[in-house]
Amino acid sequence: MTRPVDDITDFAALEPFFRIVQEGLAGLVDGEHFFDVLAEDVVVEYVVSVPGYPRRIQGRRAVADLYRGYGDIMVLHSADGLAVHHDPATSVVVLEYAVHGKAVHTGRAYDNHFVSVITIENRQVTHWRDYLDPVAVFQAIGWPAEPR
């Protein structure tokens, strides 16, 4: 399997997210890094998200391309609160977790909670539905602009 990114350091701002996902999927998927566990044709849906973010993307490379610029907006320093719910009969895993960091342009704290519904086939993630708190993003980036 070839990694869908040339330089994994491009994604350093997301390392806490990658770690908590790997922890939640431990023993269920193969791969050394987040991108390695995604099937080549993975479908990712952002069900609850923020304006301007895609609602659906397909392909491991597309996920990498989308996440590549994350560090220009947010830098994560930790992730916690992991709860794992696994249904072996359907090969579905639900991960609940929180990420913590800082918005690059405002310097404000970023604390968000996620629910990720993940389908696994042949020890790879084939489908991912993501839910987040968009208000946490807005507060961190200062949107809408606050009056002075």
Rank of each mutant, 00 (worst) to 15 (best):
142 G>F: 07
127 H>L: 09
138 F>Q: 08
130 D>W: 06
118 I>M: 00
102 K>P: 08
132 L>R: 13
133 D>S: 02
108 R>F: 08
114 F>C: 08
136 A>V: 03
132 L>S: 06
142 G>T: 03
142 G>D: 12
110 Y>G: 06
127 H>P: 08
137 V>E: 07
105 H>G: 15
123 R>E: 09
128 W>F: 14
123 R>V: 02
103 A>C: 15
122 N>G: 07
115 V>W: 04
131 Y>C: 05
141 I>F: 02
140 A>H: 05
122 N>I: 01
137 V>D: 11
126 T>I: 12
115 V>L: 05
116 S>R: 01
117 V>L: 08
126 T>S: 10
126 T>M: 02
110 Y>D: 06
129 R>V: 03
134 P>C: 00
103 A>L: 06
115 V>Y: 03
102 K>Q: 15
140 A>P: 04
134 P>T: 01
103 A>S: 15
135 V>T: 15
137 V>M: 07
123 R>P: 01
103 A>H: 06
129 R>Q: 11
114 F>T: 04
140 A>C: 03
131 Y>N: 11
106 T>D: 10
138 F>W: 11
128 W>D: 10
112 N>G: 01
114 F>E: 11
129 R>S: 05
118 I>C: 00
137 V>Y: 14
135 V>F: 13
104 V>W: 14
117 V>Y: 00
131 Y>D: 08
123 R>M: 04
141 I>R: 05
107 G>R: 09
134 P>V: 00
136 A>P: 02
109 A>R: 14
117 V>I: 13
125 V>R: 08
112 N>A: 02
118 I>Q: 00
139 Q>F: 07
130 D>I: 15
126 T>C: 08
119 T>C: 01
106 T>I: 05
142 G>M: 12
133 D>E: 13
102 K>Y: 13
